[in-house]
């Protein structure tokens, strides 16, 4: 699967639960919304090999 988080890109070749993807990068689930193939999902959903995972950062400032 291909994972995007801001300008960062990385790949995983196995099925993974979303909260584990976030935990591996020390991303606080409280600060993001995750979409798999364009569909918003919870941290308990699974991403499959071949999926497009987008982690969108909620915190903004200015």
């Amino acid at each position: 699967m291909k994972i995007r988080y801001g300008t960062e890109r990385w790949e995983k070749d196995r099925r993974m639960v979303v909260w584990r993807i976030l935990e591996e990068r020390e991303i606080n689930p409280e600060t993001v919304i995750v979409a798999i193939n364009g569909e918003v999902v919870t941290e308990d959903d699974f991403a499959q090999p071949g999926d497009d995972v987008e982690i969108v950062r909620a915190i903004s400032g200015g």
Binding site: T31, V32, I33, V40, V56, A58, I59, S60, G61, G62
Partner: peptide, 21 residues
């Protein structure tokens, strides 16, 4: 919260600027 508003925009298909200042 920011996360709740973000979920609202993504689920309702609102195109927003995602870049930070």
């Amino acid at each position: 919260s920011e996360r709740e508003v973000l979920a609202y925009t993504m689920l309702s298909g609102i195109r927003t600027m995602r870049e930070d200042c």
